Computed example of a mutant assay.
Amino acid sequence: MSIGENKQRSLYSYVVPSTPIKKEKKQFSAYAFIAPTTILFAIFYFYPLIMSIIDGFRNVNLMGGTGTFAGLHNYKMIFSNGDFLNAFKNTSIYTIAIVLFGTFIPMVVAVLLNLNIKGKSIYRTLFFLPMVAPSVASAMVFSVLFENDKTGTINEILSFFHVKPINWLGQASGILPMIAVIIFGIWALIGYNMLLFLAGLQNISSEYYEAAKLDGASGWSSFWKITFPLLSPTTLFVVVVTVIGGFQVFDQIYMLTAGGPMNDTTTMVYYIYQSTFVNQNPGLACAMATILFIILLIFSILQINISGRNKVEV
């Protein structure tokens, strides 16, 4: 054996034992960095989730105390009470509407603002402003817009066309209150979803469009056969996030309609709030919150599985 081979072997035997130690140090550093976030997540998210599930099986006193075991009593009350089913129906209508319009409109806006147009940075900022404004303040502005009498901005505009004032937020057994809430929800979502679609568009290589242009493809054909398929992961993420946000809607309901009129705009989260703080029944509210969590979990898992099976190739 040559001297060079002995040196290489000695060097190898010196380096190899230190490798696991370096890996352990790196792993320890990684765990140290994620530990604060993990601890805070466990305290403020995981622990309340577990306690909410447990309290769904108990009669809980809002003023304190552990409460007594109630079994499935709270869940029986949920499905025997038409108010919860009505809240689920209203939530589903709201969610379907904002998913359809809150996905399509931001996608179109993002495609337009991704073009080489003058002042696109200003337009992007204007569309994103609703995300910066507090939802409660925005809801107060919309309550002025949809004011039921002649002082409401929309009714004042309609008066120029000799249209009588419309009771937007107080029409009993009508669709106008839900439409007003849906319009607010779509307006609040456009900026955030547009930003997500812009990020997805900028990850699409320009070579696809150049090749399509050489083949004589039109703008619509390029969008349908290139942009839309390659945006499918972003679209899936937008849909899932929008569905979760739709089922958790509360601010605009509380500020615009307070669940009325005649519970026509009462959603699941608003009904959970009423059950807890108005009806003084936290156990029932926790049971409803558990059902809402299961619905969102199942939907998210289904969406992810569907996305993994239906990958579109360009």
Rank of each mutant, 00 (worst) to 15 (best):
I93E: 13
T91M: 06
I182F: 04
T103A: 03
K150V: 04
G152T: 03
D149K: 10
I166A: 01
M178L: 14
V163E: 05
A172M: 10
P177Q: 10
F101L: 15
S159P: 10
L129A: 13
T95Y: 11
V109I: 14
F161N: 03
L113F: 09
I93A: 11
L129Q: 06
N116W: 06
A139K: 06
F142R: 01
S143D: 01
D149R: 14
V99M: 10
L145V: 14
W168K: 03
I117Y: 04
S159E: 11
G119H: 05
A139F: 04
I182T: 14
V144G: 07
Y123C: 08
E156I: 01
L115A: 14
K150G: 00
L145I: 15
T153C: 00
S135I: 12
V108W: 12
I182V: 15
T103W: 02
V141A: 01
P130S: 06
A97H: 05
S173T: 07
L169H: 05
T153W: 14
N148K: 00
A97N: 09
V111C: 12
Y94K: 14
P177M: 04
A137R: 02
L176V: 02
L126P: 03
G170K: 09
G170D: 14
T103D: 01
M107C: 09
P177H: 06
A180N: 12
Y123G: 11
F146V: 00
V132L: 14
V181K: 07
F101M: 10
K120W: 05
F127G: 11
L112D: 00
E156T: 12
M140F: 13
L145M: 14
V132M: 09
V132F: 14
P106S: 00
F88Y: 08
T103Q: 08
P134C: 04
F104T: 15
P106M: 00
T153A: 07
S138H: 05
V99H: 07
N148Y: 01
K118G: 00
N116T: 08
A87I: 02
S143Y: 06
F88S: 15
I93M: 13
K89P: 01
F142H: 00
I96Y: 08
F101S: 04
V144C: 03
N167I: 10
A139I: 01
V132I: 15
F101A: 13
V136D: 06
A139M: 01
G102D: 00
V132C: 06
M131D: 07
H162A: 11
L113M: 06
L158G: 04
I96V: 15
